[in-house]
Nucleic acid binder design. Structure first.
Lengths: 141, 141
DNA sequence: TTGCGTGCAAAGGTTTTGCATGGCA
DNA sequence: TGCCATGCAAAACCTTTGCACGCAA
């Protein structure tokens, strides 16, 4: 997790502010572009991609990939996201494609187990959990 | 999980045979193309993609996405892969990019918990677990 | 004979990159 | 002033799609 970057520009501030206000919501790079374009304040897509990447490196943003064919998702977490407290994670339904946000402490046990037995420091927030959602199990849409 | 498809062609057999011999190894669509091209038996990439998709639907193949920018990975599992027995799953190191194969029964408990508490039928095989691998934690490369 | 499988080429979409310009420190 | 950030356009990349032809049943 890198330090804060060298330069603070107008755009980097704008993007960060925008994302802070979207805590718990996941958006894509093009969502960010669209948002600023709608505001009449166009930001180049390369800039958006570069800023998002930077924020991910800084640990402010969580990045995860739902599908290889859908764009990467970003979510603001702030710097305190890697505590052992309650975390929000993402379940992707393989059937309907829905992405579900869950709060669950149970995951901590898996994390501890992975660390103790497999020496792997699981990052539950970054991980996307695949499976079948309730609606698709019961047959309701 | 769909039934065996209607037609068995030479290519579909070849691809399946090839994948059977790679149990436990993960490969990409272009790996498959390359393999057959090296054998002097070129198979169109569309065919490879379509066959792989079919095998995933049939439950013979497991598909998972490491990164949004790297190609999708496939792994032969056979039809018996969805039992509650020991499963093989994948951990991706966020630092060095390594993908680690793990065998772990502990994951079953998370699966049970997700089902009981969150009504989500977790598919541990499809899921890619993000984190930091042992070598990167200790600083060895 | 019917209709699925195949191959080629082209399109689609996301993300990265090269390069000249602009802005922060 | 020096270096980083930006924007545009183009490239790279993986994957899907359209269409005509071939092949399995």
């Amino acid at each position: 997790m890198a330090e804060r970057s060298k330069y603070n520009t107008k755009h980097s501030d704008r993007i960060l502010k925008y994302l802070e206000g979207l805590s718990g919501v996941h958006i894509t790079a093009s969502d960010v572009c669209d948002h600023f374009r709608d505001q009449g304040e166009t930001i180049g897509q390369s800039t958006v991609y570069r800023q998002l990447e930077r924020l991910v490196d800084e640990g402010v943003l969580n990045k995860y990939n739902i599908d290889s064919n859908s764009p990467a998702c970003f979510e603001y977490t702030g710097h305190g996201s890697h505590s052992d407290g309650e975390v929000c994670f993402h379940c992707k339904c393989e059937k309907c494609g829905r992405v579900i946000h869950l709060h669950c402490d149970e995951i901590k046990e898996l994390k501890d187990h992975m660390m103790a037995e497999h020496h792997f420091m699981l990052d539950p927030v970054r991980t996307v959990y695949y499976g079948i959602c309730e609606e698709c199990i019961t047959g309701n849409t």
